[in-house]
Amino acid sequence: MTIKQISVFVENKEGRLAEITNVLAENQIDIRALSIADTTDYGILRLIVNDPEKAVKVLKEAKLTVSPTDVLAVGVDDTPGGFAKAIGVLSEAKIGVEYAYAFVTPTVGKAYVILRVNDNDLAAKALEAAGFEPLNQSELFS
């Protein structure tokens, strides 16, 4: 039960991010969540979009370096301690988290966390056992 995240290599140059996101806009691709990992010389733009296959295709056509990765999307309660509970489950199962980012949806009371872990299957099982439900691609955009 994973979803596709798209990562794009972005050199630290003025206007670069605008150019990349414009490519997605022109192709009617809807961004649900994003995060940017930045270093001195470059950044990694990570995206959750409605049509990852099309996004990869158009970004590659724009001569960008793109890499799809399977990540987990988990709904948590939008209350204090909601995220801590989910992370606690992974910590107990000794699953390493490389990075995570969150977003909220119009549904009141729910927040969503994108998790990049070292073992998706193990993490999904541990979360399910604790009552969390990892989402699939279509659920994310319904």
């Binding site: 990562s7 290599f9 990992a37 270093t39 370096t65 793109v66 890499s67």
Partner: peptide, 15 residues
């Protein structure tokens, strides 16, 4: 130049 083979979603791997 960055290539698909070198690229990763993880900063650690690129470093």
């Amino acid at each position: 130049e960055m290539s698909d083979e070198l690229f990763s979603d993880s900063v650690r791997h690129i470093e």
